[in-house]
Each structure stands twice: as structure tokens, then as C-alpha cells.
Design a protein around this nucleic acid. Structure first.
Lengths: 197, 197
DNA sequence: CTATTTCGTAAGTACCCACTTACAGTATGG
DNA sequence: CCATACTGTAAGTGGGTACTTACGAAATAG
């Protein structure tokens, strides 16, 4: 045998560029030619690392999720006690949401394709984000949360929705940065608590 | 002169089909061939009614907005007094949101294109939806709304976000119909009132 | 009737895109 | 050292897609 493969390493190296390209251009407009150019390689090299364009996209989604998940995990562990973890996360997102420029990838595959693999990957990602947020809400509400309304699951979906409008409003220039921060902070904490009856 | 043009009438006739096709397939996947087939005409007929595909899409967006706006206007006028108008709208959307199958058109042009015309049309549509919702919130809150938090503008964006997750969760099968209804009803009314301090 | 314009059918064009193939260079294990 | 795999370069291919052209038929104003 000869020359050990560096494919895994190379994939890791290129993934950030790929993800950003998909996030910026969407699935269709991110042509393989464009992806290759931004990666500073030829197209067939990409095809040696992934079987097809779909796979590159799925990998990019995975990468974006991991990035967020790692940051959130860090914020959780930074807290002294467990108190206020949800609020800290909210505040972090209010301050930094969209900074990476990678989040629009969430929309990229939605109407752009009907590939089941992409469908599944998006479904998984939404599900994981939602479960994470939901758990934080539950912890935040504690015992008295049992009488809160709406329940944690719905409020978590609403917070996901907050992220979506944040993305869209950024793309279309509908909200200033200051207002977007307040959207996360104010509406976010309202959703966190719900309304106890 | 001879044979008066029926273009305007024909456009009106085809627009629902065009809008539905864009909503189902997104901008790119809704090819001119597919659009023509669903309209049961040849492609060049579409090109006699609109200058290009962009224009068809913009017209479709306009059409979808008008459809919603008309329904909302009807619901507003159906009310005896002005009381509870916002709640009636919310309840209607909880019950019927997504029925038309046309709402996903909102996402279709977001990552699919960078055409400024489409960008503008979407921006306008989001702006009009938001302004409408915002006004309803303000009316609903009345005078005491002045001390409500978060303010009506942000809550209106959050409700727009609710619509977005409703769309996405429908497309990805993340929420049952029952839960989606509760999402609108429960979280919606929470956002309507805000939290007075 | 007839000139003019619209309407429908069919074919075509130029371009783009995902993906492939062919081949030369290079590093590593035996 | 050399056979074997990996890595990079360059060109190509088949299919699709937005948009066009050509032309005959139908309809209406004068």
C-alpha cells in the first residue's frame, strides 16, 4: 500500500467554506463550480471527498449544527450554578445571532430541493435544535413550569421561529441590529416564562 | 384594429396555478416547462403574458398577499364591534393556516435567487404582513398597551415567525395539526398581550 | 370581405450545471 | 526502487432550462 489518505482531514478543512457557500447562495445557486472555486480546488476533488452535491450539503448542515451546539454547550458549562442557563443562552444569541453567517443554510434546502436525504437532514437539525431549547425552557421553569402556558414544546417552537425571522429580516433588511437584539431578549424571555395562570 | 386582447383576464386566470406551482416547488424547481404544463398552455404563451419568469413570480407573491389580505379584511368586517378582532384573526389562522398551500412561496425566493426584483417583492410582502399584524396588536392592547412589553412591533415579528415555523413544520412533518393549532392559539395570544409590568 | 392583431402549436437555441474521464505528478510501503 | 495508491490539472458530456422564432388559424374592426 502507499500514501495514506488525507480525505478526512481535507473534508474537515473544506467544510467551513462549503457551508458558508451554501448559506450565502442556497442549494441551487451554490453550483459545484462555485464551491470548487471557493475551496480553491477543482470540481472532481470535491467529488472524491463526497459522492455528490447532496452529500456536501448534508455534511454542511451537520457542521453548522455542531458549531452551534458546541457554543451552547460551552455557555452552559461556563455557568457557575445551573441558575439562569436559559437566560444566558438567550442573551448570547441576542448578542451574536447570525454572526457566523451560516444560519441561512437552514432555508437553503427547504424549497430548493425535494431530495429525501436533504429533507431528512433538515428535519433532524430542526428536531435537535428544538429539543435543546425545549429542555432549557423546562429547566428554567422548574416546578412552577408545570402550570405555565403555553407549554415548553410550543414555546420552543416559537423561539425557533424567532431565529427564522431574525434570519429573514437580516436578509431583507427589515430590522436594525438593535431591534433584532431586543427581539431575542424581550420576546425570548416572555416565551421562556410563559404566562402562569 | 382587430381582436381585443384578453391578456389581463388570462393572467388572472393562470395566476392561481402559477402561485401554487411556485409554492410547491420553489423558484428554481418551478421550471417554465412545468409552469406551462400545469397551466395547460405552451411556454411562449406565458412569455406573452409576463416578460420573464421573475415577473411571474412577483405576480404570484402579490396574488398570495392579496388572498390573505382579503380574508383578513373580511374577518375584520364581520366583527360586530371592534372588540376581539385580533383574537378572531388569530383563531382563524389557528384553524386554517396553510390550507391554501400557498404560503411556502414566502421561502421560495429567499435563498433561491438574488434577483433584486424578487428581493423587493418579498420585502414588501413581509412588511405589509407585519404592519397589519402590528396594528391589530396595538388595537387589541388599547391604552394599557402602552406599558406592555415587548412592544407591538417585536411581538408582530414574533407572530410572523410563528407562521414561518408553522410552514416549515408542515413541510418537514414536525408538528401535528393539533399542536400547530395550539401553537397559534396559545403562543399567539401570549404575544398579543405581552407582559404588562 | 379583408387587413390586422391575437392566439395556439411546434421546434429550436444558447447556455449552464452536476458529474465523469483521462492523464501526469507524487508520496509511501514493501 | 518500484509498484501502488493518492493528489492535482484539464477537458468533456449529457441533460436540463430560460427564452425565442416561425407560422398557420381564428377573430374582429372597418
Amino acid at each position: 500500500m502507499a500514501r495514506p489518505s488525507q480525505s478526512a482531514q481535507r473534508r474537515k478543512q473544506l467544510l467551513p467554506v462549503i457551508a458558508r457557500t451554501f448559506a450565502e447562495l442556497g442549494y441551487r445557486r451554490a453550483t459545484t463550480a462555485e464551491l470548487a472555486q471557493r475551496c480553491k480546488v477543482r470540481e472532481n476533488i470535491l467529488y472524491r471527498l463526497w459522492p455528490d452535491k447532496k452529500a456536501m450539503f448534508v455534511a454542511a448542515i451537520e457542521y453548522v449544527y455542531q458549531l452551534s451546539a458546541d457554543i451552547w454547550q460551552r455557555i452552559l458549562s461556563e455557568g457557575d450554578g445551573k441558575a439562569g442557563a436559559a437566560l444566558r443562552l438567550l442573551q448570547y444569541e441576542a448578542e451574536h445571532y447570525g454572526e457566523s453567517g451560516l444560519h441561512p443554510i437552514i432555508f437553503a434546502g427547504l424549497s430548493d430541493t425535494d431530495e429525501p436525504e436533504i429533507h431528512e437532514a433538515l428535519e433532524k437539525m430542526y428536531g435537535r435544535f428544538h429539543r435543546f431549547i425545549r429542555r432549557q425552557i423546562a429547566v428554567h421553569r422548574g416546578d412552577k413550569g408545570k402550570r405555565s402556558s403555553p407549554d415548553a414544546e410550543l414555546c420552543a417552537w416559537a423561539i425557533v421561529g424567532l431565529g427564522n425571522v431574525a434570519n429573514i429580516s437580516r436578509e431583507l433588511g427589515l430590522l436594525t441590529d438593535r431591534r433584532r437584539k431586543r427581539l431575542f431578549a424581550d420576546v425570548g424571555s416572555l416565551l421562556l416564562d410563559g404566562q402562569s395562570r
